[in-house]
Design a binder for these strands. Structure first.
Lengths: 208, 208
DNA sequence: CTCCTTCCCTAACAAGTGTTTGGTAGGTTA
DNA sequence: TAACCTACCAAACACTTGTTAGGGAAGGAG
């Protein structure tokens, strides 16, 4: 029997999924805390209670760990985004749903989001991480489309630069990963509500 | 005459200021593009058209370059912030002025801001960069104070978590450094105007 | 001309990097 | 018991890292 007939095209699964996930979570925590480049495989191994070389029983390389963390995060994110985008909601409801899903994703995959935030820009130049750029373009398309639909439907202000608004909304959501801590005072849904209230209604007090 | 009587407590100025600034700007560009840890001194030297060792005629270490870039940026930022905070403006005008000054600072010190954004968190743990943490605390105090003043004066909404609002406003401003390019379509002041409009009035269309 | 300073180069250093190779304790299967 | 597989260790590998020491070309000062 030649090799394994596992046709998985990117991951050479060499150990049971449970242990992999465990080690990936540990690696993600260290990557997020120290930055990818500043993280040595020995630090990851320390955090996992083993020696550096032993990691290579489970993974091909340090980069493949990062790859698996990021692509796993993006896969799950897009599954939820696609569900929202395909639900036939109005522009405002779409925006609200996207923001809420984003905060939920931050809650679930905090480390991965933090890593994505810090490293995606200069990783995108590397050909192996081209999917980061693709994802970002798809991202922009989804948000920009929603905003433009909203302007056309007269639910969003027409006097704002749409591209600027897109970056504004996108950033306000995702930078939350830099300070958000799961299990804190606010649930992801509560934070999403307040963020949406600020973004949609503004923080100024109006006499209405 | 013993050494130079220059009582500068942190920088051992060993070369004329002009050349230093030039090299620091180059280093900042590379740091911002690739990340501090991923940037080798040889890459900086390449960009400057010299060899790695030659950098050490001008600077004590790679870390001292980063230090000089960040502290120079923060010094200038706080000079302008302090001017705004001491001007006796109302809360809304203070917020507008702070945001505008922030975008101007992004325009002038783009690379330094980008580096600060990416590295300040895990640099803050290092004792040598304790001033980053101090600055961030001073930062929070200034913004939180302004927001609370505004709520008390009934110019900002009272139903929002102030700390959440602070992070919201802070982040929306500074992450702009990740996409802003000087000399583009929008001036810093124009971007500040639109950001303030979004933050204060919201992006939803109201029938007023 | 000589002396000295400025600014860079050449060449190397030790420490740390990701990764590989071979081994091995312990459990499962036959 | 014997063969085998899993998950790790021990030790080294080639390479890159930040940094240093000594030298030398260019140019101004005396």
């Amino acid at each position: 029997m030649p090799k394994s007939s596992n046709s998985d095209h990117k991951k050479s699964r060499v150990s049971p999924p449970e242990r992999r996930e465990e080690l990936l979570a540990i690696a993600a925590r260290v990557f997020a805390a120290q930055g990818y480049n500043a993280t040595t495989v020995r630090k990851i191994a320390d955090a996992a209670g083993m020696l550096a070389g032993s990691l290579y029983y489970h993974f091909d390389s340090k980069e493949s760990m990062l790859d698996e963390i990021l692509s796993g995060f993006l896969d799950e994110l897009w599954a939820r985004y696609d569900a929202v985008l395909g639900a036939g909601l109005g522009p405002r409801e779409t925006l609200e749903a996207l923001v809420t899903e984003s905060f939920r994703e931050i809650d679930r995959h905090l480390d991965a989001v933090a890593i994505y935030q810090k490293e995606s820009r200069h990783l995108g130049t590397q050909p192996h991480f081209a999917y980061l750029v693709e994802s970002q373009q798809k991202f922009e398309k989804a948000w920009l489309g929603t905003l433009e639909r909203g302007v056309a439907a007269k639910v969003f202000r027409p006097d704002l630069d749409v591209r600027l608004t897109y970056r504004f909304v996108r950033d306000t959501v995702w930078v939350a990963a830099s300070w958000y801590r799961p299990g804190g005072r606010h649930s992801p849904e509560e934070i999403a509500r307040q963020y949406l209230s600020m973004v949609l209604e503004g923080i100024a007090l109006h006499d209405t």
